[in-house]
């Protein structure tokens, strides 16, 4: 039903636009404002635990916006509380990574971090080059699909409302919502892209997203073993609640 699909698409696009940390215009204005050589050097000379803490704070901030996005998706708050929490716990970082492609400049491989754009080398002192480079590769590959804001919105919702998460109490209800979102996404992609495989290409990025989140958990565990105090005392409580082993 076209009417229902249109309503769902409009609701998700509106929810996305209302809950993005930066508007498209703001991002365009910032796109070529990069951290200077001295600023990058400053990030590189930070102790490992300090930069980890800064990143945990940024990620947590982004996640709060994703929670707000979820709440505004029609049907999400009608799911049982267990499933709302489960979908957010398992999907919020994936949505943050999808949203990150908005704040990624593929022309010079830089990402917006603390007000300006910077490259991978900015995160050197985190001590997890594999994770950082995988995240940058992902952002670059998602940017290459040249998604519109509407497609990013619907794809984010599709990533979040997923029946692949274990321990859902009402998987049928989640599935119904997921199907509607995919129909809307498919409809919009057919309208915008000449490439018939565009949707398939987009969906094929989902396993990479979940692999990135697994890698993040592993890196966090390794970091926590070396700096338990930093995690316990200085990391945002929400970040610990979501990712603590």
């Amino acid at each position: 039903n076209c009417g229902i699909m249109h309503r769902i698409a409009q609701n998700i696009i509106k929810s996305h636009l209302e809950t993005c940390q930066y508007t498209t215009e703001e991002l365009q204005q910032l796109a070529w404002q990069t951290h200077s050589y001295e600023e990058v050097k400053m990030y590189q000379s930070k102790p490992r635990d300090v930069l980890w803490q800064q990143c945990a704070i940024q990620i947590t901030h982004a996640i709060q916006y994703v929670v707000e996005f979820a709440k505004r998706i029609s049907g999400f708050m009608e799911l049982c509380q267990n499933d709302q929490i489960l979908l957010l716990k398992s999907g919020c970082l994936e949505v943050v990574l999808v949203r990150m492609c908005r704040a990624f400049n593929p022309l010079n491989n830089t990402v917006l971090f603390e007000g300006k754009y910077g490259g991978m080398q900015m995160f050197k002192s985190l001590g997890c080059d594999d994770l950082v480079s995988a995240v940058f590769d992902f952002a670059k590959s998602l940017c290459s699909l040249q998604l519109t804001e509407e497609e990013i919105a619907l794809f984010s919702a599709a990533v979040l409302i997923s029946t692949d998460r274990p321990w859902l109490m009402e998987p049928r209800k989640v599935q119904k919502l997921q199907e509607k979102i995919y129909f809307a996404l498919q409809h919009i992609m057919q309208k915008n892209h000449m490439d018939e495989d565009a949707l398939a290409k987009l969906i094929s990025r989902i396993p990479t997203l979940s692999a990135l989140c697994t890698l993040h958990t592993e890196e966090l565990q390794a970091f926590q073993q070396l700096h338990p105090e930093t995690v316990n005392v200085l990391f945002p409580p929400l970040y610990k609640e979501l990712f603590n082993p």
């Binding site: 209302e18 809950t19 709060q64 916006y65 929670v67 707000e68 709440k71 708050m77 509380q81 709302q84 929490i85 957010l88 716990k89 409580p237 929400l238 609640e241 979501l242």
Partner: peptide, 20 residues
């Protein structure tokens, strides 16, 4: 619920775009 009390609270809170 107890394990995810912050997430639970965020879900319960009503927030406006302005507050974000």
């Amino acid at each position: 619920k107890e394990k995810h009390k912050i997430l639970h609270r965020l879900l319960q809170n009503s927030t406006s775009p302005v507050e974000l």
